[in-house]
Nucleic acid binder design. Structure first.
Lengths: 157, 157
DNA sequence: TATAGCATTTACGTAAACGTAACAGGTGCG
DNA sequence: CGCACCTGTTACGTTTACGTAAATGCTATA
């Protein structure tokens, strides 16, 4: 059994929410593979996010080392994506983060974007509900048609 | 005033539902521009659908002429898209249509695809609702943070 | 006849978020 | 020693439904 030094179980369920990035690089560097497993993403994804300027892991030579800050940022990214923000939006919001300030501007931007996104989501929900309704109608109609057909064809069997 | 022979007002609100294509090419050919206006799509869309084998308008030389059948088909396409089917799905279903049969196979396929699509839509709806919840949570959190900030900064004003 | 207005065709561009391939060089361990 | 897995980079592929030219032609009207 390869148990190794797998103490990579910091658990990602801390308790911070969106737009709230508390820094702090104490210890517990993760390498890309651990990071990927911890968050359920692929290596490609992590490199991609870095390429897009969303993550900035340290380097040990060429090896990426992810700190607590990176974990927090990734958590934000994934949450952002979950609620439907584009990576561009997420970046824009995170780029405003300044550990030495009140981040009022960041929070305002986030709130503004959030309101718009919320509106979008509600519209989408409405669209989907409409689609469900129409599809259900069509389905019951088709079911009726099939019922007629079978009552004609099978009545002689 | 260019009134011409514009009696192209057949009205698209007949009363057929999805998967139900009744043929019949009596008269009233529409050209692509009229067709587009009638259904609120672009010329590009109509040509695109034709290119994908979803529409087969007649030709007068090189000019496309759309018949009643084409209108019915387009209506189905648009309904299909509204409920979230891909054009490929729509084509697959429409290709099974046979004016000289009971179309049982077509209806079964349509029903099968519809059930799957309905499931997809319900999942999507759930995802969106989750997103709405999470986003709402984050928003109220951000609002609190902003409130704190302003109570600190503005208290001295 | 010139102009307007509609038609035709081919074909590259767009958006998002990665996946996937390809190629090469480390590193740990059993 | 060899295998599995790490690292790096570049860059094309995928998906869907069109948008957007670009270049050209037909036809009716002023």
């Amino acid at each position: 059994m390869t148990m190794k030094l797998m103490k990579a179980g910091d658990d990602a369920g801390v308790a911070d929410n969106m737009f709230v990035d508390q820094g702090g690089a104490a210890d517990g560097f993760l390498r890309i593979g651990d990071m990927a497993k911890k968050f359920g993403v692929t290596l490609r994804t992590l490199r991609f996010y870095e390429d897009k300027g969303l993550l900035h892991p340290q380097r040990d030579g060429s090896t990426r080392l992810y700190t607590r800050r990176d974990k927090a940022r990734l958590k934000l990214i994934l949450l952002g994506r979950k609620v439907g923000f584009s990576l561009r939006d997420v970046k824009q919001m995170m780029d405003l983060y300044d550990p030495s300030g009140t981040n009022t501007k960041q929070l305002r931007l986030a709130l503004d974007k959030s309101e718009k996104q919320l509106a979008r989501l509600q519209k989408q929900k409405q669209v989907i509900e409409d689609a469900i309704d129409e599809l259900s109608n069509s389905m019951s109609l088709v079911r009726k048609m099939l019922a007629e057909r079978s009552s004609q064809t099978n009545s002689a069997a």
